[in-house]
């Protein structure tokens, strides 16, 4: 291939990543730079996983409090526990002996939705962008949620994003997470949420949920809704992975099948065969 044709070749355009090839193989990188940092020659050994995650999305290093906030959120989200819908998705793959990839696909697919999932975080982030720290705007949007005339592949929200429609009072861990995050940097948005949580809950009729704290935190950290959605998916995978592997070893017989849990209300009954 000549230089002329190489220049004409289609390229991936990116602000994130630059590579220099090994002298003996143009298909392998000798050096990889992320936002100007030599990944294997400089970052390795210096950067934490959470800092690297920040760098990938933001292209600038985080401050100490930003790192601590993202790390706190990451720890809080890492394992929603084996009763969580997304983790149950992963465990269903495990007990059936499905591919491990399918366990994570199941966790991502289930955990992508409007109820406690990444889409809820995305929509809640849009609320934050629209309402900011204006309580009246929040109360208005809670009672008059936006409605698109055009249909979408996503089902419509059935509750205020960031709040749990099946909840009673705000769960202790949600409050603990919010307190922890407020304590790190006293971020304006999180302090506001902590202050006005009772009013918001009164108006939604539901308690604040992890998705709501996640959205507020990622808003406070300057992430876009799209980034928040995908980060939420990513950060919840460790627990799904661990529980899927554990249940794979346990097997299907030690996992709920809900044998007596289903009632067919229009059962035609056994069919008589005349053969």
């Amino acid at each position: 291939m000549t230089d002329t044709t190489e220049k004409a070749a289609e390229q991936i355009t990116t602000k994130i990543w630059r590579e220099e090839a090994e002298p003996d193989n143009p298909f392998v990188a000798a050096k990889s730079y992320c936002a100007g940092f030599d990944v294997y020659g400089d970052l390795l050994g210096k950067i934490s996983l959470v800092e690297y995650l920040w760098l990938l999305f933001k292209l600038e290093p985080p401050s100490t409090s930003q790192t601590r906030m993202l790390e706190g959120l990451a720890v809080a989200l890492a394992n929603p526990g084996p009763r969580d819908h997304s983790v149950r998705g992963a465990m269903n793959a495990g007990v059936g002996g499905s591919t491990r990839a399918s366990a994570l696909i199941a966790a991502i697919s289930v955990g992508a939705g409007n109820l406690g999932g990444a889409r809820e975080v995305f929509t809640a982030m849009q609320y934050w962008q629209q309402c900011g720290l204006n309580l009246e705007s929040w109360i208005d949007i809670i009672h008059n949620p936006p409605h698109e005339e055009r249909t979408d592949v996503w089902p419509e929200m059935e509750h205020t994003p960031g709040f749990d429609p099946n909840g009673a009072s705000c769960p202790t861990p949600v409050k603990q997470l919010l307190d922890h995050l407020v304590g790190i940097g006293h971020s304006e948005a999180l302090v506001w949420l902590q202050t006005h949580r009772p009013t918001l809950e009164q108006n939604t009729g539901s308690p604040l949920a992890f998705s709501g704290v996640a959205a507020a935190t990622l808003f406070a950290l300057g992430f876009e809704p799209e980034q928040a959605e995908i980060l939420f998916l990513l950060l919840r995978l460790p627990g799904a992975a661990a529980h899927a592997i554990e249940q794979e070893k346990m097997g299907w017989s030690r996992y709920p099948f809900f044998s007596d849990g289903l009632t067919l209300t229009n059962d035609p009954g056994p069919v008589t065969h005349n053969d």
Binding site: I12, F27, G36
Partner: peptide, 23 residues
């Protein structure tokens, strides 16, 4: 459709930075 390293068109910062120094 393999891609060699020249197939990445980098449009980010041109400076090479060092982690932990004044960025």
């Amino acid at each position: 459709m393999p891609l060699n390293t020249k197939r990445i068109r980098y449009v980010g910062t041109n400076e090479t930075r060092s982690w932990g120094s004044k960025q």
